[in-house]
Design a protein around this nucleic acid. Structure first.
Lengths: 243, 243
DNA sequence: TTCTACTTACGAACAGCGTTCGTGTCAATG
DNA sequence: CATTGACACGAACGCTGTTCGTAAGTAGAA
């Protein structure tokens, strides 16, 4: 009995990642035999070049020079493929050894790595929302964040919920940036001028928005990202960070 | 020349919301003539009962006892419909008169209203991500939030970016809760027990996660929501709130 | 009244999506 | 050689958003 894709998934979710299930002889029947690995990597290629919205089963199959049905022997679902992508993405994250002296900086670094990965594959954070948090790779990241927070002297309950808040925000921010970038490929300043004009033309029922239009449109997306992370971490009652 | 849906949309985006453009005689040709209003309200019905994923043009058309093409005379797009829904949703938000003594509480109230609306129509926050921020109704909400923050003594730049962070988080939180609820309709405790078991069975490479499994799975979604809002607002260098 | 102009409604169709089914094809085994 | 089992894949189903051509009915003009 050959493993059904469901069994493959179950194996992936297995909590003890031992027994790599030695791949059968590389039956070189096909020049490039379809493997989960091949599917994942071509999927990443597509998302990187054309965005997450372009990631369809048919598109992946076409890139692999086959029909869509061929994928379902290796992957349960599109949803499953999404989860694999997110897992792979999280696996790339480098987790530092927790250092009580610089825990805030460390946490920000991890979040920034995540954001960069999400933005490298625009729109993929959409998949991160749906991905089950039981995935081993995502769990590895949150384990790392938890370790950093605990090393920083944050109490466990606060740390746990802070991780939730952080990952949720990173996801959302990345998604928004991706969507906004897709909406207008032009430089951002152009969009900012447009925004300023709109705000200036607003009726008087929007006094504050008109008055502080400059502040509302100020800063790059990176600035806003750093600001929000600071907002969440600075209020944290932990050991004061040196950096 | 009758207004094309594009023109209708432009009119909606118009910055001065005057001249209600007196509706033409209610040519009662149809028992229930299709109007933008009718489309919006049936769309809300569908989302409320079956979730955002069930909101399709055909589904709306069927509920209106017509074909899908009939909708495109009143609505540009599905995307346009989404924006209308988000706009309507934001219009329901009650904005308090800013009170410097209770500004944090007021802000939390507004965010909670938003969350409750999003959760009432599960999954609709997905549309909120894509919605252009130039929409008048969403702008009204952020104007209200800005006023509250300024009244609280928060400096304008910080206030502007805080609004961004807050709305983004509220959206993301609502979306996650909606998705999680759809995944398993069963009571949450069941899912929590499952989570605890999984964590307990984790290999030793996840020491913190195993150790603090209780904290990681503690609290309702409401608890986490309140926690994160507090995280963002308590660190804010503004006038200390009485409440 | 009759004719025209115009708005609104809608059936049919197109291209694309995720997914399933039945069948074909090859390698290794009995 | 024959059989088995894993893998690949063409074709199809039901769904999606959207467009097009056309019909129906009202409003105004001649």
């Amino acid at each position: 009995m050959s493993p059904t894709p469901q069994q493959r998934r179950a194996a992936r979710h297995q909590l003890d990642p031992s027994a790599p299930a030695a791949r059968r002889g590389p039956s070189g029947r096909r020049k490039k035999p379809i493997t989960v690995e091949a599917i994942i990597s071509t999927a990443f290629d597509i998302v990187e070049k054309e965005g997450y919205e372009a990631l369809t089963m048919r598109r992946v199959a076409a890139a692999l020079e086959t029909g869509p049905s061929s994928l379902y022997a290796h992957v349960v679902n599109k949803e499953d493929l999404d989860e694999l992508l997110i897992g792979r993405l999280c696996a790339e994250i480098e987790l530092p050894a927790p250092d009580p002296a610089t825990w805030r900086r460390q946490l920000i670094d991890v979040c920034t790595q995540l954001r960069d990965q999400y933005l490298r594959y625009p729109g993929i954070s959409q998949a991160a929302f749906a991905a089950a948090p039981s995935n081993l790779d995502t769990l590895r990241v949150s384990e790392g964040m938890l370790a950093i927070l605990l090393a920083g002297g944050v109490d466990p309950q606060t740390a746990a919920w802070t991780i939730d808040a952080l990952t949720l925000y990173v996801n959302a921010h990345s998604l928004e940036v991706s969507l906004a970038a897709r909406r207008s490929d032009e430089a951002w300043v152009r969009s900012r001028d447009e925004m300023l004009n709109r705000f200036a033309a607003l009726p008087d029922t929007f006094p504050q928005t008109k008055r502080y239009a400059a502040e509302l449109t100020a800063g790059t997306t990176h600035d806003r990202f750093a600001f929000t992370l600071g907002l969440m971490l600075d209020g944290l009652p932990g050991q004061p960070s040196l950096a």
